[in-house]
């Protein structure tokens, strides 16, 4: 997996600017991913590449266009030291795997890494960087590949009002 490395506080306006929000098709959105912020991304990104950020990746707007534009570009995993809350949920829901890795800063731009989900580590050069597991309640969604697939498997939801009665 080849790395596209970004810094701290990468906001959703940087991932997909506001003027492209009438588009919903991931492949079409991918043509504008990081436009004006890092133009080589949309020109050179390859299927299977991985985006790596610093702290607070995906802050800002709730636009799902952001994870969709990355998915459309063939990116299936985003690694960051921390994620903004809405982006994290949106990523899980759209089937883009967000991985929290406190040492994401040690991953170099353009390098090749391997993600070992079974052992919860990223192998980057000589380093083995531990990753945090996805919170339990989101696991079922990750396993289904997204919230749409998860929702389709439900006929009813287990409301807290019912389970606690």
């Amino acid at each position: 997996m080849r790395v596209w490395k970004f810094g701290d506080n990468i906001d959703t306006d940087a991932i997909i600017p506001g003027r492209f929000l009438t588009i919903y098709d991931p492949a079409e959105l991918a043509r504008h991913a990081f436009e004006g912020t890092r133009d080589e991304f949309r020109l050179n990104v390859q299927k299977g590449d991985v985006v790596v950020g610093g702290r607070n990746f995906g802050c800002g707007s709730s636009r799902e266009h952001a994870p969709l534009s990355l998915k459309g570009a063939g990116v299936e995993v985003v690694i960051a030291r921390s994620f903004a809350r809405i982006f994290y949920r949106n990523a899980v829901n759209t089937g883009l795997l967000p991985i929290v890795c406190d040492q994401a800063d040690l991953i170099a731009d353009g390098s090749e890494i391997v993600i070992d989900l079974t052992n919860q580590v990223i192998i980057a050069g000589k380093g083995r960087l531990p990753i945090e597991p996805v919170p339990g309640f989101l696991n079922a969604i990750v396993e289904k590949g997204g919230l749409v697939e998860y929702a389709r498997s439900l006929t009813e939801v287990p409301l807290c009002t019912e389970s606690r009665r």
């Binding site: 709730s62 636009r63 989101l138 919230l147 439900l154």
Partner: peptide, 20 residues
Amino acid sequence: TGIGSTDMGFVLKFGSLYFR
């Protein structure tokens, strides 16, 4: 709180959502 569109699709259907 703000949510994404897929979460909203879920809410429109079920009227509820997972919250921590």
